[in-house]
Every structure is written in C-alpha cells, then in structure tokens.
Write a protein that binds this DNA or RNA. Structure first.
Lengths: 233, 233
DNA sequence: TCAAAAGTGTTATTACTACACCCATGT
DNA sequence: ACATGGGTGTAGTAATAACACTTTTGA
C-alpha cells in the first residue's frame, strides 16, 4: 500500500481518535449533535464530533476535551461506548476510534449558545443525514446502549433539569425508550419507588394549572442501584 | 502493505494492545485464565493474555488471534469490554489496551489440552493473584459486564455443552450471578420460557438416576431477545 | 365557559418467592 | 436397603398492564 493511505500526516503506525455521540433532549425529542467535518478526506460532510488524541492526555480526557471545545455544557453524562478498530474504517489511513456517548439537556432558548461550533446542529434521531465513515454504526450502537443503560441506571434524569415535573420526566422516558408510556402507571411506579423528592414549587410554563416539581433523591437512588432496581416503566 | 508500518521499537506515539479476560466454567466454578507475562517490564508476573496489535489486523481480529494462539477452543463467546487509555497505565510506555472478555467451557478431562501456553492456568475468581498493570481492574469490570449481559442475553449457555442437564445449567447460573438459586423456581422459569428443547437422552455421569438433557432452542431464544426477556432467575 | 394540561384508583393478570418431600437407580 | 442426586407443586405476595374521568386555571 502506498503513501496516500495516510492523508492526515506522515504516520508509520496507527492513529487514535475519539468520537462523541452527543444526545440532547429539548423537552420533547431526543436529538443528536452533528457537525461539518473540517479535515480531509470528506471535509464538509456531516460527522460526529471528534478529534485525534494528544500524546499527553488520556482517552477519557480527549473525549472530555472534544466535548468542551464544542459545547458549553460541563458535567454532561459521558460514557465510553466502544472502540472501533476495523482496518479500513477510515479512508484517510489506519485510525482507531474510541467512541463515547453523552447525554445533555438542550435549553430551547439557548441552543445556539450551548453549541459553540457554528457548523454544528441538532438533528432528530429519525432524520440523521448520511454521516462519514462508520459514524452511523456508532450512532445506532449508542442508541442501543442508551436504552440498555436506562433500564438499570438513572440516566434519564440527565435529560431533564435539576428540578422537573412529572410530565417532563415522562417525555424523557418516552424519548429514550421510544414508546408511549401510560401516565398513571408511570406516576405509580416513579412515585412509589421513592426516587423523587417533592418540592413545593409549581411549573406554570406549560399549563394553566401548573405542575409540581420534583428532584431526584440521590440517596434513594444509590440504594435502588445496589438492589438492581429496574428503571424502565 | 509493503514495509512494516508498525515498528514497536521506533514507535514514538501510542501503542495499541488487546487483552482478553477469559472466563471458563468447569461444571462447578467460574475461573479466570491467566499466564506469566513474557515481556519486560514485569516479565514473569501474572497477567491476562494479550498482545500488541499488528498493522494488518483489526482489533477484533487481534483479540481473536490472542485467544487462538493460547487456547484450542474456537467459537468461544467474545465481546469487547472497554478501552483502557490512561496515560500511565503501562509502565513500559504509552500503551492503550482494548480489553475483550470471553466465555468458554473447561473440559475437566482436557484442560491441559485446551490451553496451549504452558505457563497459563485457570484460577477461581476469589483467588486471583496480583496481576500486572491495570489488569485487576479489567477483571472486575469484566465480571460486572458478564453479570449485566447474562440478564439480557443467553450467555450462560456458553458455559455449558451443546446438550446439558438442568442441574448443570443451574450451576452455571449460580456461578455467573454469584448466588444460590432455588431449583424449583429455576426449573419453573427456564422450562416455562420455552428456551429449552428437551432431548430423550439422559446424562448418568453424575447420578444413578440420571438427568435429562436439553438444548437451547435458538428460535425461541431470538424471539425472547426481541421482547427484552429477562434471563436472570 | 372553555380549552388544555395535570392529576387520580381499581381490577385483572402475571411473575416471583418461599418452602419439603418422593423418585429412580446402581451398588 | 440405602445413599445419591433428580425431580415435582402450591400458596402468598409483589409487580405490571389496562383503562376514563375530574380538577385547575388563565384567557
């Protein structure tokens, strides 16, 4: 194989990259963050956000850096997804990519502020355009893992504000599990679990009646985790 | 590939390795396969089996190679576990390791034949010795993942022969979930699920009465997987 | 007064847990 | 005949699923 196989730079071995599958929830739908790839080959095509790793950072740090360079939100949920290592997965040379997935809340008023890179945008999961390389596969694996994780870990709470209403939380559940959930059964299970602490505040932005706000009870949460609680409804 | 592109010695950037956490079941206990590390630093210490990846193989292929170089069993269950990328995880330089975990049956009559490398041995999970680098962390993460996976995928069946008895399968379940399981409830759930196809054979090696042999019904299995069946007892 | 979202209970079904004795067989 | 492991059933409890109407309030 000839030299053009390595387009990024002179490279005798294997390059390592990270890519982030960033899921955002805008109180309504799950969305994916994509942006226009800046480097050749395939510059200008839609892509996940990513970067080569630097010699002095761990892979986790690299993923963190990618995210904080592109968005404003800190403390987003982040988990390693999978290491993609097929030999010809990258047209630009032998590149191994460690993929991460993230959950964040999209503030509908501020979604331009949250995302720094101006070529980046949120797309709904059923309207993801063609993505470069094996990024589509990364996304479907991430969706899969998200659903699995949401059954056993309280990750859905990463999609709603610190204080949230039950209808809000229900929508997040429905977005993650991609199914309608009966709201009486939902209330019964979630309130019965002790996972939520009631507040006396009401959110009146979505209805005249207003809806009580709750927050996650982190102590009960830890306890339920130990017992292997099923967070699915 | 014309000339060696991956020269370990003159590598100035980052090396990539694979390590395999191999679990074996000897009809009684879950065991871990370890061997004496052959390369410096830390040569002679107990280690997981692993290797640097070659420039012309994918990461999955590398893990497969590591396993087939060391053992005789093909078709063992193999799944990627996690990519370990801390900056100082390897005393010998910047090495990223992609860990895989495997499940296999240990044939008690043939366990020397199954494992080719003569410094390799099976150890029970509660008696794992000190391991090099971050291999202990790899093992505990693998145990964790094994338990999670066994709840949603029929991986326990990888630990028993093609045709097995219910007491055998029960022991495998107990080994994986690390708990006693009531055998009447076990039979009720497993036979009620339709997962098993009865055969008319009896295994008389463990009792005078003999125990009926079953095999996995792969069609029912697929169906249950789609429905999100819970394989835990 | 009405539109729009929030909130509330019951019943039937299903899955899970706990628990103790008889069976078949080879020696 | 007996020791060994294989096999069986029931009843109480907990979780889940299906289902429709009333309440609040700002406009």
């Amino acid at each position: 194989m000839k030299k053009e196989r390595f387009l990024y730079k002179e490279q005798t071995s294997i390059l390592i990259a990270v890519d982030c599958i960033v899921f955002g929830f805008d109180q309504n739908e799950l969305k994916l963050l994509i942006f226009k790839r800046e480097v050749e080959p395939l510059a200008g095509k839609w892509s996940l956000i990513g970067s080569f790793i630097k010699p002095d950072e761990s892979i986790n740090e690299a993923a963190q850096r990618v995210l904080s360079e592109l968005t404003d939100l800190q403390n987003t949920y982040m988990e390693q997804l999978y290491c993609f290592g097929d030999i010809n997965r990258d047209a630009g040379g032998r590149v191994i990519s460690v993929a991460y997935w993230n959950l964040m809340k999209i503030d509908p008023l501020n979604d331009r502020i949250q995302v720094r890179n101006h070529t980046a945008k949120w797309v709904t999961l059923d309207k993801v355009p063609e993505l470069v390389l094996d990024h589509k596969e990364m996304v479907s694996r991430a969706i899969q893992t998200l659903k699995e994780r949401a059954q056993h870990q309280p990750v859905v709470f990463e999609l709603v504000p610190e204080e949230f209403t039950l209808p809000q939380l229900l929508k997040a559940y429905e977005a993650v599990f991609q199914k309608r959930i009966d709201d009486r059964n939902f209330r019964k299970k979630i309130l019965g679990s002790g996972l939520l602490k009631a507040t006396d505040k009401k959110d009146k932005t979505t209805s005249r009646k207003g809806s009580f706000m709750y927050k996650l009870d982190r102590n009960t949460c830890k306890k339920l985790l130990k017992e292997g609680y099923n967070f699915e409804i």
